[in-house]
Design a protein around this nucleic acid. Structure first.
Length: 492
RNA sequence: CGGGGUGUAGCGUAGCCCGGUAUCGCGCUUGGUUUGGGACCAAGAGAUCGUCAGUUCGAAUCUGGCCACCCCGACCA
């Protein structure tokens, strides 16, 4: 008996939880809202980090690390940002415990160790970073500052879901400072493009680039750009954001510089981030009722080799063959697992590695030894084929590329099929309640209409697509004029 | 924070209404037979029934408090 996974059609939310737990990605911890990311899940995160980090470096960024704690007075300096995060902040008020005189063996907060000023556990690091930039930036020669940090942040969420929303999560946050607005805007757009490229080429998840409406904008930002992805259940998921901060944080923290003309000027800022939430997106974009389907570019294990044997002698011979194949593939940079456990049957191993989403499985049995072949199975389509031994070194890399491409195309076709233009509010609601997905509709551009639609349908404006074609029409809700369609959806 | 639910072996559970220290499956250990899609047989080990108190000769079971977690909603990446 194996690990039963709830089917997507039966209960999509449960299917997701089953996958995360049974594929050993993560589990709930003893701390409310916080998860333990297990080695297999963390390995995916490491691959994401590696891919992104290279892209950040290639665009001129460097890594640094800023403190977890932010003094309250510093945190509240940029008012909108502070307000936006205020209700989900964890606060440190004391710095010491002591033995509880009333309960033997128990500890209590030492009332004498109260902090002069409370420390906010960062929900994001703009405050601490900009207060530091103030010291670093005096001249236009000090600009731009292009820094990224890999860190954990804490947002005290009411309700959490593994990877998608946890009280503590891992992410990267880029924080850049520039001499001019156009340069900062260009940076914002560049990083949005980096995210889009990463998500599409590594994760094989197609995204729509756009700007957030005022209501959905990052607190403290002038403009928030985002990439939006579509999950298999028809709900949208924000996969990354890039913010043009204007001079808001320069104002709040007094970050000024002397420009080439010798005049004092305020610095322009950006910030941008993606989180372990991407792992949730990865799961929900590709996986099926048998388990994970991982894109080769992020799979911790590319190829698993399963021997099929009766006797130890057979296993020995097969191992020799398997090690040869593994060695050749590893030389090409692929991660190969030879599953030579003699405690499980092949069928069990097949199911287990499928659950874990390993893109390619090679099975080798006595018949293969005789014929100088192996059986190659791909995870995405479950197709099997017999491949000659001497063709493996070329066919496996090709197959992995083909899997990467295939799952992207599949996700793209699905996503495209889930974009529905509508022209009336009735149609709007009908599509949302029926097939779901993205709804492309005219909107009058007001926050009131946006809020009313959200109230009525639970759908939010995911973004105003960057490539939206000018098209005159009337708002589906208010009937007022509109010059382009925007993307609505129910979202994670 | 509102509504609902759950807490019994590593995991999933039965038992609770009608009190007498615990059921079954998976997993684990040992031995044997097996191995081209989640093997089978046999023998074992493993639980102070979330926690504290009360009722009782006796509490997993009844009563009360507390704690934790999950699900649905509001909030959010």
């Amino acid at each position: 008996m194996g690990k039963e996974i709830t089917s997507r059609s039966e209960d999509y939310a449960q299917w997701y939880i089953d996958l995360v737990k049974k594929a050993d990605l993560a589990e709930n911890s003893d701390v409310r809202g916080c998860m333990v990311i297990k080695p297999y899940g963390y390995s995916i995160w490491e691959k994401m980090q590696a891919g992104l980090d290279k892209m950040f470096k290639d665009t001129g960024h460097v890594n640094a690390y800023f403190p977890l704690f932010v003094p309250k007075s510093m945190f509240e300096a940029e008012e909108k940002n502070a307000e936006g995060f205020a209700k989900e902040c964890a606060i440190v008020t004391h710095y010491r415990l002591k033995s509880d005189p009333l309960k033997k063996g128990k500890l209590m907060v030492d009332p004498d160790a109260k902090l002069e000023e409370e420390l906010v556990v960062r929900p994001t690091s703009e405050a601490i970073i900009w207060s530091t930039y103030k010291r670093w930036i005096q001249s236009y020669r000090d600009l731009p500052v292009l820094i990224n940090q890999w860190a954990n942040v804490v947002r005290w969420e009411m309700r959490t879901r593994l990877f998608l929303r946890t009280a503590e999560f891992l992410w990267q946050e880029g924080h850049t400072a520039h001499a001019t607005a156009p340069e900062a805007i260009q940076e914002t757009e560049q990083m949005l493009n980096v995210y889009a490229e990463f998500v599409e080429t590594f994760m094989a998840v197609p995204v729509i680039k756009g700007k957030k409406s005022e209501g959905e904008r990052f607190p403290g930002a002038v403009e928030t750009y985002c990439i939006e992805a579509m999950m298999q259940d028809g709900k949208a998921l924000q996969a990354g954001t890039s913010h043009f901060l204007g001079q808001n944080f320069a104002d709040a923290f007094g970050v000024q510089f002397t420009n080439k003309e010798g005049k004092l000027d305020k610095v322009w800022g950006t910030s941008w981030g993606v989180s372990t939430r991407l792992i949730g997106a990865l799961i929900m974009a590709h996986s099926d009722d048998d388990g994970l389907v991982l894109p080769p570019k992020l799979a911790p294990i590319h190829v698993v080799i399963v021997p099929i044997f009766k006797t130890e002698q057979e296993l020995e011979k097969i191992s020799e063959q398997a090690n040869q194949i593994a060695g050749a593939l590893r030389k090409q940079g692929y991660s190969v697992k030879f599953d030579n456990r003699d405690t499980h049957k092949p069928g069990f191993k097949f199911a287990e590695w499928e659950l874990k989403g390993v893109p390619v499985r090679i099975a080798i049995g006595p018949r293969d030894l005789e014929n100088k072949t192996v059986e190659v199975a791909r995870r995405d389509t479950k197709e099997k084929q017999v491949v000659a031994l001497d063709a493996i070194a070329t066919s496996i890399p090709a197959l992995l590329d083909s899997i990467q491409e295939n799952i992207y195309q599949k996700a793209l076709a699905f996503r495209n099929s889930m974009i529905t233009p509508v022209n009336s509010f009735d149609e709007f609601k009908q599509v949302l309640d029926g097939k779901g997905g993205f709804v492309l509709a005219h909107w009058d551009g007001t926050a009131e209409t946006e809020a009313a639609i959200k109230e009525d349908t639970k759908a939010t404006i995911r973004c105003i697509p960057l490539d939206a074609k000018p098209e005159s029409g009337v708002c589906v809700y208010s009937g007022k004029p509109s010059d382009k369609r925007v993307l609505f959806a129910r979202a994670y």
